[in-house]
Simulated assay, not measured.
Amino acid sequence: MYTKMNFVHISSRALSVTQHPVSSRALGLALGVALDAAFADPRRGHPVAFFGRAAAALERRLYGDARANGVAHVAILVGSATALGVAAEKAPPVARTLLTAAATWAVLGGTSLAREGEHMAGHLESGDLGAARERLPHLCGRDPSHLEAPELARATIESVAENTSDAVVAPLFWGAVAGVPGLLAYRAINTLDAMVGHRSPRYERFGWAAARTDDVANYLPARLTGLITVAAAPDRRNALAVLRRDGHRHPSPNSGRCEAAFAGGLGITLGGTNVYGTRVEHRPELGDGRKPEVGDIRRAVRLARRVCLGAAAVAVTVAALRGLTNARRR
């Protein structure tokens, strides 16, 4: 017979599970994903922007044309973000859940990424090349001044593919694995790479640590992105084939996995010549389909949204299972 004592016993066990750090983590991740879907990134006052200003200020004090200076820059900033996350993990269960949700919202960029892709699609569909060229720097760093519609479409799709990993899958991966410290540390690493990790005379040595740390932090998430893309793609078989054949051909150890899976899944070919200011890069082609067209941008955005949902489901499930397992051991 189901008695009041049974109810109390079951309720006590359920409460002990929800109070476990990893269960708080699962709920916090889910809430953070929902917040990103509902509110995206604010135009002003974003926490990552505050971090960027702090990173720029520290750069002015530490800069030197040497790898050691860059290592110190990364260590101080990533270490500070990680320490803040460790402090958040020590909060009581409800507060820890809310802090996890806030951190997840702050580091995710999937909704904003999809909106940028849709803005580019709208400009190109209406034939407004000027507006599309002005908008492209919101997505990537290549020079848009001489790009026509097909190349603008390719740049947009490649950026959507790469940033689906950087803005969604990677932070959720590290959030599931390491909670708030993982979320904040990853976003710090990725932001520093965007700020100083690119190739230029100023950052060739100083930015080395930021670029290499970002490569390491994205190694597993990029490959997970490729696999989730295969599962979510319109053409799963071709997505897997192109991922296996071409994923390693990109100059980045990680970006190629994402772009190859998108290329195969959408039946297009990505890669080619890219211009970044005065620097020209000739990248290998990924895929064996036709060249991208304007209409493919919305297809890429839809695929990116499915990958984001898949990554969220995986992250929340992993965190929840870890919470249940650890609670049973206790």
Rank of each mutant, 00 (worst) to 15 (best):
A222S: 13
N218T: 07
G247H: 04
V230A: 10
A231E: 01
R237W: 04
T225V: 07
A233D: 04
A241W: 13
T225K: 01
R236F: 02
P221M: 05
N218K: 06
R236A: 03
R237S: 05
R245F: 15
A231L: 05
T229H: 00
D215T: 09
A232I: 03
R223N: 11
D235G: 11
H248C: 15
N218I: 03
D235A: 11
L227T: 05
V216P: 05
A241Y: 12
L220Q: 07
P221S: 07
G226T: 06
R223K: 15
H250G: 11
Y219W: 14
R249Y: 15
V216N: 04
N218E: 03
T225L: 04
V242C: 13
D246H: 14
L240Q: 01
R249C: 13
V230F: 08
L227N: 05
G247N: 07
R245Q: 15
R223G: 11
L243E: 05
A217Y: 03
R249A: 13
T225E: 00
N238Q: 12
A241N: 14
L224W: 11
D235W: 08
A222V: 11
V216H: 09
P234G: 04
A217H: 03
L240E: 00
D215S: 10
D235K: 10
V230P: 06
R245L: 14
A239H: 01
L240M: 08
L240W: 05
T225A: 05
L227P: 03
A217P: 02
L227Q: 06
D215E: 08
R237V: 03
L227V: 10
V242W: 11
D235H: 11
A217C: 06
L224R: 10
T225G: 03
R223Y: 12
A231T: 03
N238C: 12
L220I: 11
H250C: 13
V242T: 14
V230C: 10
D246A: 14
L240T: 01
A217G: 04
D235L: 10
D246K: 12
L220M: 11
R237Y: 06
V216L: 11
A239D: 00
A232D: 00
I228M: 03
H250Y: 12
A239T: 01
P221T: 04
H248V: 15
R245G: 15
D215G: 08
A239N: 02
R244E: 13
N218L: 07
P221W: 00
D235I: 09
A231R: 00
D214K: 05
L240S: 04
T225P: 02
G226K: 03
G226V: 05
D215P: 09
L227K: 06
I228R: 01
A231K: 01
R245T: 14
V216S: 07
R223F: 12
L224I: 13
A233M: 09
P221H: 05
